[in-house]
Design a protein around this nucleic acid. Sequence first.
DNA 1: TACCTCCACGTTTTT
DNA 2: CGTGGAGGTA
Length: 733
Amino acid sequence: MNPHHILDGLNAPQLEAVTLPDVSALILAGAGSGKTRVLTTRIAWLIQTGRIGPGGVMAVTFTNKAAREMLTRISAMLPINTRGMWVGTFHGLCNRLLRAHFREAALPQSFQILDSQDQLALVKRVMKANGLDDEKYPPRQAQWFINANKDAGLRPSRVDPADEFERRFRDVYEAYDRQCQHEGVVDFAELLLRCHELLSRNEILREHYRARFRHILVDEFQDTNKLQYAWLKLLAGRDSCVFAVGDDDQSVYRFRGAEPGNMRQFEHEFATDHVIKLEQNYRSHGNILDAANALISHNQARLGKNLWTAEGKGEPLRVFEAASDAQEAAYIVDEVRSLRAEGVNLADVALLYRSNAQSRVLEHALFGAGIPYRVYGGLRFFERQEIKHALAYLRLIANAEDDGAFLRVVNFPTRGIGARSVEALQEIARTHGSSLWHAACANPPGGKAGSSIAAFVRLIDGMRTAVAGLPLQEIVESVVEGSSLKDHYRTEKEGAERIENLDELVNAAAAFSAEEIYDPQQPEGGMVDPDDPLSALNAFLAHAALEAGEHQAGAGQDALQLMTAHSAKGLEFHSVFISGLEEGLFPHENSLNELDGLEEERRLMYVALTRARRRLYLTFAQSRMLHGQVRYNLASRFFQELPPALMKRVNAPAARAAGYNPFTGASPRAAFENTVSYAGNPWRVGQNVTHPKFGAGVIVNAEGRGSDARVQVNFREAGLKWLALEYAKLSAA
DNA sequence: TACCTCCACGTTTTT
DNA sequence: CGTGGAGGTA
């Protein structure tokens, strides 16, 4: 193969990034600038030029999808087996390290991974055991507290509680960690924290991996949190090269601990000489890009970068103002139909919104119009109730100490072990400091409850014996049958789909073992150890926790893509609708109180805009049903940050004739139900007004008559206010 | 144990 | 409006 072949078609900065010598580097990669290509070509180039073997590269991503995409592209460029390569998510790679060194990490060989649901259940259990009032100390908040501290690299002993409240949460955190250790389970954040601790305490391991991974590449660097950054620094040491690719303008996960400041810190600590900007966009037409650039230029905190394209200007952005959310949906339905008629695949069209609740109205309209659509962000395969139950049986077989798994299935399907019996077991377990499983085994078989528990123990023991030495698929098959979950669901009215899913779980196990083959050349690489009869099962359970799986069927169908702006990050479409562009919704009202909140909303809008290749629709509604009542919103402030010349308004002509200006929120609208009048001037709910002091707003309520007439106005800047028409200098804008 | 009713709550989310 | 959790009743 021509060694330069893989470099063909790269532009100058891309080429520079790909062929950097053995140095660390920060790549500022704008939206659509070929970031994944640079990342994967760099890996291929390093290997092809003999700078490093496939085993010496580590590539880290945030999602499994991104990791898979990378492996696929590397395989296409190089004639090598990528199986032993360390390409994966932060969590996946940490899992791999901890499995390989479970003793050094003080974990049982078959430690299990808790997903968020499992974690919350465990937090609740711990809080209950410690007699904490879950009214005053909401378990969700405790969970958040624990994760936030772990993400910051803080164990309970290093947490500095700000008040009594946090002191309690700190205690919960401590008890929770202890319980996890007892049960041999780890949550997502623990995978990283435990791995970090392992490497920082164990010099031999640390040096081993530092010597091995001379090149570490990181995707979506702006999304790394403190712990992930520390982990990278630890693993890289002084001699390894870190190739960090990110875009500060697309940082939209600060709310979950992402520290875009890591980019600047990285620049200081690793890569002062090598910052490369990828600014040529290969995705969008000029107008779309110009709009995105104009919008993001309103942010202060930026590393600075301006995207450009060699493509033509293309169409203007289409702006539609609807009277209501339903009308907005109807417009979108019409436009989707005509896009389809133009020959655009529905799968290449995205309908974006700020919050999931907004999908309902849109789905209703699409369903009514018979347009196939797919909603992202729902319940995923491995998160379904029936799947969690089946997995819990498997977990209990793999690791009997797992109380969470025990509790989930001890009485499901019901076998006469009620809450009282379970509490008794918990009491025994607590006094003996043992697991529920041991308590159940030691349980004297007295009475009906006792014999039910004994029967459960026999069931699980029987399964464990029956399953020993079987291939993974047969293990799963046998447990699904033996648990009689299917029988249980056969009696349920919604049971048919659940049974299908259980069958699908068996298929997933078969597919998994076909992919994960033990490779003796890669002792740390292959996850399945032939000497451990349960290692295939453990690997599968870890896979289930780490990769919740694409949720719905019909993924291959040509369907309109509905998702939040967050979920759209990293994707691109021929046409994109951004709906609900209203003050309070996008930017979301809750974000306005937060530090950097508006700038993060603006980055999110930037992400949304830059998803479109050819056509972009921006829609908003004057009125919207939210929480059971109608709300009246102004057009999003983001409209004022986009150059008018790039936009074309496509509303109903009547509204335009009335001189309505969506960017300032001004002029009369169609009549709404509530009106009042003062001095012969009528005022109407939904009407846009201006006030000399408070500025632009919209009337959301009205009451009284004559000199008592008052209106409630939602001002863009000043918020909600009641104003007496007799005194307020209100004018119809 | 199963079902029902009442109440509170309501951004964004991957692993 | 809608959901999910809690608590009560048959």
